[in-house]
Simulated scan of single mutants.
Amino acid sequence: MAWRERFEAPAADVASRRKRTKWLRAAFARVTTPLLPDDYLHLANPLWSARELRGKVVSVVPETADSATIVIKPGWGFSFDYHPGQYIGIGVLVDGRWAWRSYSLTSVPSASREDGTVAITVKAMPEGFLSSHLVKGLAAGTVVRLAAPAGEFVLPDPLPAKMLFATAGSGLTPIISMLRAMRRRGQAADVAVIHSVPTEDDLLFSEELRGMADDGLIDLHLQFTRSDGQVTPAKLRALCPDWAERQTWACGPGGFLDMLSEQFAEAGAADQLHIERFALERGATGAEGGIVTFGTPDRQIEVDGATTLLEAGEQAGVLMPFGCRMGICQSCVVMLDKGAVRDLRTGAEHVEGERIQTCVSAAAGDCTLDV
């Protein structure tokens, strides 16, 4: 099928699950050569692109003082056949460069198909430039780039008879999509929700969660850590005595997830715990760093030993493949042509000739990537 590969080549990198969409993109690319298809498509509609997924920000709705729900209308080629709990990548043009991050979808697939929008809920982090921009600096009407929905942390179908959602902070965001989907579908199960945040003011979706509890959809416990303390193993057993018997979905800070992992492992129920980590847990970063070359000498940047190769490429203006940005999905894997890099999670070193994950690796001296 070499002819098919040649025909589809102009749209080969577009994130779309539908073959018909890829063929249409490829056909349009062929008939508009030698000009880029986007030269024509953008004139008709800024959300049309033969090379990438795009979307327009419909609204930015504050949830708490430092978080907001961003409603986006995706353009041509976006598939609304995602699963509750999945995430999308969003790219925003800031100071002349595209900055990318991944966020859980808080919308429900069936509702998205009806109104043609998706939603993410973002908490502005003190160290997170892009998250702060999304919450406080993003305006309705902004055109953003999108990566297709992905992730295995999803609501199962059919539902288990007994479930536990254990979350902390913004770890609630993938879970709210699952709960909303259950309510919309009219699905019933024995569902316990344990969610911890510093204070009442930090609680996302407060009225909605309490409404679900009042309607009997969930058994809800809110743990306000500044007054009630952390969720400890003893607290977990007190709040949900049969926790080891439940299929559990957990999302939140690393320490919280580590505690749950230890408890489920000790109980011999590790296979019942499903975890989503929002951020790269950096272990031994080292102090190496170096000059990273992306394919050719004209694409180089010098970085420290704590900057991931993915971040380095984006800073250098290189179009880098990525997905979850946490070392889970393998979308960012490239070949290391020269030098050595270090895995920021474990400190393990990888050398030339190995395939590496750029989202969790940093330079251990000068190195060259095949991108």
Rank of each mutant, 00 (worst) to 15 (best):
A2V: 06
V14K: 01
R20K: 08
L24S: 02
R30M: 00
Y40F: 15
H42C: 07
N45A: 02
P46W: 09
P46C: 04
P46Q: 07
L47C: 08
L47R: 10
A50Q: 12
R54M: 00
G55E: 05
V57T: 06
V58W: 14
P62W: 10
E63H: 09
E63I: 10
A65P: 09
D66P: 07
I70S: 04
G77C: 06
F78Y: 15
Q86P: 12
I88Y: 10
V94G: 14
G96A: 06
R97W: 08
S102H: 10
S102R: 03
S104R: 07
D115Q: 03
D115G: 04
T117D: 12
S131D: 08
V135F: 13
G137F: 02
L138K: 01
A140Q: 07
G141S: 00
G141F: 00
T142I: 03
F153I: 00
P156T: 02
P158Y: 07
S170P: 02
T173S: 04
P174Q: 08
P174V: 05
M178N: 02
R183E: 14
A188P: 02
D190P: 10
V191T: 12
A192V: 15
A192W: 13
S196G: 13
E200W: 13
L204H: 06
F205R: 02
M212H: 05
D215S: 13
H221W: 09
P233E: 02
A234K: 13
C240Q: 13
W243C: 02
A244D: 15
E245Q: 12
G252W: 11
G255R: 07
L257F: 00
Q263C: 15
F264K: 07
A267I: 06
G268S: 05
G268A: 05
A269K: 08
I275K: 05
A284R: 14
T285S: 14
G286R: 08
G286K: 07
G286T: 06
E288N: 09
E288Q: 06
T293M: 13
T293R: 15
D298P: 02
G305E: 09
L309R: 00
E311R: 14
A312L: 03
Q330N: 13
Q330C: 13
S331W: 10
V333I: 15
K338C: 06
A340G: 01
L344Q: 01
G347P: 09
E349L: 09
I356A: 11
I356F: 12
S361N: 08
A363K: 09
A364E: 06
G365Q: 01
V371K: 05
